[in-house]
Amino acid sequence: MEYTQLGRTGLKVSRLVLGTMNFGPHTTEADSHAIMDAALDAGINYFDTANTYGGDPRGRTEEIIGNWFAKGGDRRDKVVLATKVYGSMDPSREDWPNHTKLSALNIRRSVDASLQRLQTDHLDIYQFHHIDRATPVEEIWQAVDTLVQQGKILYAGSSNFPGWKIAQTNERARQKGSYGLVSEQCLYNLFERRAEMEIIPAAIEYGLGVIPWSPLHGGLLGGMIRKEAEGGRRAGGLTADRLAAPGAREQIQAYEDLLAKQGLDPAEVALAWLLTQPGITGPIVGPRTAEQLEGALRAVELELDAELLASLDGIFPGPGATPEAFAW
């Protein structure tokens, strides 16, 4: 496993991030524990979750991770643990005014609940799952600084923030003498490259590590067309909608044909491509099975030559950074 600094911090993290969204809804607790053991054995030390993960009930994923930590073996000490706050934990309370988003009250309430479910005394990275347009940034940093002073969190990160919000949030942190955001999780992959316009340049400018989520774009980049032709699971839901978009099937077919000629696995190439991009710390991989984890691990060792990278850009051209993306 390769390691890198998380943004401007001194924290070293693996170049693959273990995503845990499937733990609970799609993967049993026993299998989830086996996957985490395998990930740790392979050198993955960066585990990502969120307080709302788990299906019904929300929070179940954090509980599964907490039970894994409780097995001992220095599991917690070996892991860089990240979770998130924003959404409501109880559908029956979604209309309660102070049980969602990023008020100091909800941050305080949510971090304590996450710590209890995760069976740990601190979070390494506490991430805002979405921007909160109503809560002043100063209030958010007041809450974060208090949690840092209490030893409950070490760093703060963001998820799904636009570039301007990354800049605003870190400028306000600088004014307060706070450390600011250290990471941004965003939707970014070969097919969906709009993060290159504003989000990634802002993250690089402010020293945030970029953690792409959905690196296979819901399976679209994982050999979807070939699997369909072989009688495998057909694309459904949002993935089917993406594949039905004008020109999308032709792009994916060209992608699969290119890699088939070179004997390369589409999913592994999609992950390896992300590791070549500026500002990227490592993509989130969310395996449902141990076999899926093994495939993701091979991507770290896969080297893509300049010719292949150019061919991939030809199939999936990026927009480039703004203003050049839409102006001279």
Rank of each mutant, 00 (worst) to 15 (best):
L6S: 04
L308T: 06
P91L: 05
W96T: 10
G209K: 06
P136A: 05
W328K: 12
E94W: 04
P91M: 02
R172Y: 09
G207D: 12
L302G: 05
R109A: 11
K101G: 00
L18M: 13
R233D: 11
I252S: 08
G223S: 01
V144D: 03
E301K: 15
R242I: 04
G320N: 04
A248I: 00
P283V: 06
G43I: 13
M1P: 14
P25E: 05
E268K: 10
I35A: 05
G73W: 06
I65C: 11
I125G: 01
K152Q: 00
G263C: 10
K71N: 04
L258D: 02
D56M: 15
G43L: 11
S110M: 06
R233Q: 15
E256V: 10
G10D: 11
M21Y: 04
G59F: 11
M1K: 15
T239N: 02
E291P: 03
S178F: 01
Q168S: 03
M36S: 09
S183W: 02
L187T: 01
L40A: 15
G263Q: 09
E256S: 09
E291Y: 12
P266I: 04
E198H: 11
R93D: 08
L221R: 11
H33P: 05
V79G: 02
A167P: 00
C186M: 06
L208H: 05
P287E: 06
A38E: 15
D56R: 15
E205V: 12
P266H: 08
A299G: 02
I252C: 11
E294F: 05
A38R: 15
T289V: 06
L147G: 04
N22M: 10
E63Q: 14
A290K: 14
Q116P: 03
S214H: 03
Q253F: 03
Q175E: 14
T27Y: 02
K84A: 04
A299F: 01
L102R: 01
V300H: 03
R133W: 13
S178L: 00
Y46H: 14
A254L: 07
D241Y: 08
Q127W: 00
E268Q: 15
S32H: 02
E29I: 12
N189K: 08
K261Q: 14
R193A: 12
E230F: 09
L123W: 04
